[in-house]
Amino acid sequence: MKITILCVGKVKEKYWNGAIDEYMKRLGRYCKPEIIQVPDEKTPDNAPPAVEEQIRITEGERILAKWDESAFTAALAIDGEMKSSEGLAELIEKKTVSGVSHIQFVIGGSLGLSEAVLKKADYHLSFSKMTFPHQLMRVVLLEQIYRSFKIISHEPYHK
């Protein structure tokens, strides 16, 4: 199984990179993990809605340029379906059993995902109604994917 996180922007903080590296290493026992980053757009302070929409469109085009058409794609979206850790594990396991060999998770930039990306995704996943920094969401997503594989493998993992 290949797991890709397709995301906007680079992570600059060492503490986030350390956590990302740790979960990428741990995931290597269960799948082939990869992170594909596309450049983010600078958002001016107090940008009008039209400028924000153009930023989402530009970042969305960059995401779509790296999109793997053969992958099952889950976009992280605030209005997506919320799942428990066991529910995410069940989703990953069902996709694996049904012959899916690549799952792609998409994380948008600070303004979220474009409508084109959301429409193209196979599934919308939400971690909360709250908004989180996209750098933190990489860590949370990686941890939950790792937890999912531990659940699927019936291996203990702290609760």
Rank of each mutant, 00 (worst) to 15 (best):
Y15A: 13
A75D: 00
A19E: 06
E90L: 13
S85R: 07
N17Y: 03
L27N: 12
L141A: 04
T4R: 03
S148I: 05
V11S: 08
M137V: 15
L125C: 02
S101W: 02
C7H: 00
V100F: 04
H158T: 06
K42F: 12
A47Y: 02
T58P: 00
S128K: 09
H124R: 01
K66W: 00
D21S: 12
W67P: 00
H158K: 12
E86Q: 15
Q37I: 14
S114P: 00
G112V: 08
D40I: 08
I152D: 06
I152Y: 12
Y123F: 10
C7N: 11
E52I: 13
E143Y: 04
V8I: 09
G108L: 02
N46G: 11
M130R: 15
F105Y: 07
P156F: 10
V106I: 04
L88C: 04
A71T: 04
D122I: 10
K120E: 07
M137L: 14
F132Q: 12
H102Y: 06
R138T: 04
Y123K: 11
A71Y: 00
S84N: 09
E13P: 07
I107H: 00
T43E: 14
A74L: 03
L76S: 05
K83T: 13
I5D: 03
I5R: 00
G87N: 09
K12Q: 03
P156Y: 11
D68Y: 02
K42N: 10
H102L: 01
L76Q: 11
R26Q: 12
P44M: 03
K42T: 06
S84T: 15
E155R: 10
S153Y: 01
K120C: 07
P48M: 13
N17H: 03
S70K: 15
R62S: 05
E86C: 08
Y23V: 08
L111E: 01
